[in-house]
Design a protein around this nucleic acid. Sequence first.
DNA 1: GTTTATTATATGACTAATCACATATGACTA
DNA 2: TAGTCATATGTGATTAGTCATATAATAAAC
Lengths: 195, 195
Amino acid sequence: MSLKHAILGFLSYKPLSGYDLKKAFDNSVRHFWPADQSQIYRTLAQLTAEGLVERAADGEGPRDRHPYHITATGLSELRQWLVASSPPQDDRNPFLIKVFFAATLGGGEALALLAEHRAAIREQASLFTGLYQQMLTLREAAPNPEVFFFSMLTLEYVLSLAPGYLRWLDSAIDRLERGDYTPADLSEHLAGGLR
Amino acid sequence: MSLKHAILGFLSYKPLSGYDLKKAFDNSVRHFWPADQSQIYRTLAQLTAEGLVERAADGEGPRDRHPYHITATGLSELRQWLVASSPPQDDRNPFLIKVFFAATLGGGEALALLAEHRAAIREQASLFTGLYQQMLTLREAAPNPEVFFFSMLTLEYVLSLAPGYLRWLDSAIDRLERGDYTPADLSEHLAGGLR
DNA sequence: GTTTATTATATGACTAATCACATATGACTA
DNA sequence: TAGTCATATGTGATTAGTCATATAATAAAC
């Protein structure tokens, strides 16, 4: 139900149409919540039925745009959701399934699997680094420092995970190359990191 | 379509019933691919229709168990999937949506949001650490070193991400406590980690 | 003046997964 | 011997999301 609340979040800033919302998602949260256009419209219909948003007077433009604004009920629903607890969810990871069953592959193929993934992760990390640096230059243009801060936090999140991800891949690839099928010694890693 | 391939993966070791598969998932991959019992049965039916698995002679036990074995087609489908490329997927993260819209909360509430999540992540990390250490003791009992190695790799993955995750939370909480809404300086972090 | 891109909203078909529930037997236990 | 637990397979209803496609006007490009 997060799309629902993300829409409420955007509408809490100002009224937007479905089309505007799609652009808002693409411009700011697509790296952790890609939103499908048709799903946005369906969710808007559902939110309207629940009385959390309302369709304002139809606007100008081709194909009549329909801006929505958040209701008082919608605002309180948003607040409630924001402060509710967020247990870490189990994110399904198809790549880890491949890793798990990589034992059924030849050693070379398993290596290729990991190496290719490392290349993709590196590329993704450098994309996010670029995005981060680009965002930094927009600091002055931000509506207010809090909004900018939390927006940057979500990018920092992605970038914070990258080094650990890549070190894991490096270590796995290194062991596979040496034909060394021993588990990593994580003792100092864990002692240092999890305190 | 990963559940499908995960099932093929398990069946590539030996024939299993739906019930067996559910236990196999719960015992080994639930931390990155929780499998719903009813979905396992539905997927088995689908795999059967596609000719990737076959229902063996009904077995003993209460309520007739139905073991499935993988076909030659199924094996080649599994291999093909394993060696296909795995682009990093966009994992939806509801917590990041909360962070993104935390600017609409009071500072204290935003802090509580992050602090509570940090506690949950710490607990999860220590759970996985325990699981990792417990798994280590089973090394001798493993069917073969490769299977054990790749199984451990999936746990190493989770544990590799934890320190970065927690450092991100620490840094965000620290800045919020000081009322310091400046973005983090990630220059050395990135320089060191992404090479 | 015709094509093309952009704006803008929507439905239909499908897929993966979740949740609740129905069913039924063998084995143990109070 | 009654109750409960573990074994074991399934269906129905619903949800969230994806993909393809339909529609249509306006503005710009050629």
